[in-house]
C-alpha cells in the first residue's frame, strides 16, 4: 500500500468506524456476545444468561469489519475522487460521535 493509499484508507476507516460504531451500539449490531459469568462466547446478539451479556466486543468487531471494507474499497477509487477527501473529517466525525455518546448517555448524569 502506498502512502497515499494508506492515507485514503485511514481517513475512510476513521470516519466509517466511528459512525458504524454508533449505529452498532444504538441498534445493537454485535457480531457476537460474551457471557462473562459463564466465560462463554456466542454468535450474534444473545440474551443474558446467568449474569450479564456483553456486546461491546461484538460492536467493536462489527465496526471494524465495516470500516476495513470501506477503507479498502476507497483505495480502489480513482485519485480524482480520493483527492477530495478532507483529512479533517477524521477528527470532526470522531468529536461528533463523542458528543453524540454524551447526549445518548445524558440520563445517567442527570438523575
Amino acid at each position: 500500500m502506498t502512502p497515499r493509499s494508506f492515507e485514503v484508507f485511514a481517513i475512510v476507516f476513521a470516519v466509517v468506524y466511528a459512525l458504524a460504531y454508533v449505529v452498532a451500539v444504538e441498534a445493537n449490531y454485535a457480531l457476537f456476545t460474551y457471557h462473562p459469568a459463564l466465560k462463554e462466547w456466542g454468535a450474534g446478539v444473545q440474551k443474558a444468561r446467568d449474569g450479564p451479556a456483553m456486546y461491546w466486543f461484538g460492536w467493536l468487531v462489527t465496526s471494524g469489519f465495516v470500516a476495513t471494507a470501506a477503507g479498502f474499497a476507497a483505495t480502489a477509487l480513482p485519485e480524482s475522487v480520493t483527492r477530495r477527501l478532507w483529512p479533517g473529517w477524521t477528527w470532526v466525525v470522531a468529536i461528533g460521535v463523542m458528543i453524540a455518546f454524551c447526549y445518548l448517555l445524558r440520563n445517567l448524569f442527570l438523575r
Binding site: 484508507f9 476513521a14 466511528a18 460492536w59 470522531a94 460521535v97 455518546f101 454524551c102
Partner: peptide
C-alpha cells in the same frame, strides 16, 4: 463513555499514525 471513547480512539489511530 470510557468504553465508547476508547473505540473512537481506535478508529482514529491509523490516521494519527499516518
Amino acid at each position: 463513555l470510557k468504553e465508547h471513547f476508547a473505540a473512537v480512539g481506535l478508529a482514529i489511530l491509523p490516521a494519527y499514525w499516518h
